[in-house]
């Protein structure tokens, strides 16, 4: 009696988890969505970059690599690359530095979920709302934060200053993201055994030494992912620039070309200048850049290995 009962499930087991016959109803909706809105559009975006597509006429001809050749001599493209790189640099530097500081302070002092919730709040607020709030706070006549900064001798035109606009947007997005980034790092800190710090303290190590010798090395996998996410996100800044520099009669990407980051330029080419082909060529360049950066960053920081293992 016992043998058949035991063998029946085993014989059936291959079918239990089996086959496309069972899987396809589960996969169908997501597969339709993936094909329609991710996979085919990606191929089509690459195809568009080899055409001179006109969105208004909705037609275009194959032009080979002309769009790519024109990029090399396009001063606005190189301007966009420069502006984006400057923004990415500033944003990563300030965001990561503040986030590490906050995460370490929280790790030592409190596990309060109220504080953790509060510092996450800005990350959940729409970029458009954040941009508008800071347009007002940093208004050079009436803004209270602009006023506060002027007490400390900092005078600036913020969003309206050609040299100030990118650091200002980086500052605003640091405000929006540093709490969330700190929570990611905080989660990573929880995986470091406390005994290491106790041993360090017994050996007379200073806070700074423990930070350098214990915290940073063991945090490396988390830091690598945070850097990748921050960098990919920073290259894609759009909403804040569009609203903060395009509001009140301004032109998105202004003043002048000072904040025309790569995303804004891609958008402008497609929808303002009606050159979808050239726009797509830059999007291809952006995609390749992000892939290369991600690959090397994960490789360099050896993200998948932990020194704890």
């Amino acid at each position: 009696m016992a043998a058949p009962v035991a063998s029946a499930p085993r014989g059936k087991k291959l079918n239990l988890y089996g086959g496309w016959k069972a899987a396809w109803p589960f996969l169908l909706p997501s597969f339709i969505g993936f094909m329609l809105f991710f996979f085919i559009p990606t191929l089509r975006g690459i195809y568009l970059s080899f055409t001179d597509w006109n969105l208004l006429a909705n037609r275009g001809d194959f032009v080979g690599v002309e769009n790519y050749e024109r990029l090399v001599d396009d001063p606005l493209f190189w301007n966009a690359v420069r502006v984006s790189a400057w923004y990415v640099f500033l944003n990563i530097l300030s965001q990561t530095a503040f986030a590490i500081l906050i995460a370490v302070a929280m790790d030592r002092l409190t596990k309060s979920s109220i504080i953790r919730s509060i510092i996450m709040l800005p990350y959940l607020i729409p970029n458009v709302v954040v941009a508008l709030i800071f347009l007002w706070l940093l208004n050079s006549n009436l803004g209270i934060i602009a006023d506060l900064f002027s007490w400390f001798g900092i005078e600036s035109n913020y969003f309206a200053g050609p040299n100030a606009v990118i650091p200002t947007i980086a500052g605003v997005n640091t405000w929006r993201h540093m709490g969330y980034t700190a929570l990611l790092i905080f989660a990573g800190l929880q995986t470091i055994p406390k005994s290491l710090y106790e041993a360090g303290a017994l050996d007379g190590a200073s806070e700074w030494q423990m930070m350098k010798r214990i915290t940073i090395p063991l945090l490396r996998p988390v830091l690598a992912l945070v850097l990748v996410i921050t960098m990919i996100g920073s290259f894609q800044v759009f909403d804040t620039v569009q609203v903060a520099t395009g509001g009140f009669g301004g032109r998105p990407g202004g003043p002048g070309d000072a904040s025309r980051v790569i995303y804004v330029y891609i958008y402008e080419l497609a929808f303002v200048r009606n050159e979808a082909g050239r726009s797509s060529a830059i999007a291809v360049v952006l995609l390749l850049t992000l892939m290369v950066i991600t690959f090397f960053q994960l490789k360099l920081l050896r993200a998948n290995e932990s020194d704890l293992a």
Binding site: L36, F37, F38, I40, P41, T42, R44, G45, L48, W53, L55, I232, F235, Q236, F238, Y263, I266, Y267, A270, A276, S279, S280, A283, V284, L286, L287, L290, M291, T294
Partner: peptide, 14 residues
């Protein structure tokens, strides 16, 4: 890994 702006115009076509 696909930035949303990459599929913006193709999705608009859809």
């Amino acid at each position: 890994m696909i930035p949303p702006i990459f599929v913006l115009v193709p999705n608009l076509f859809l």
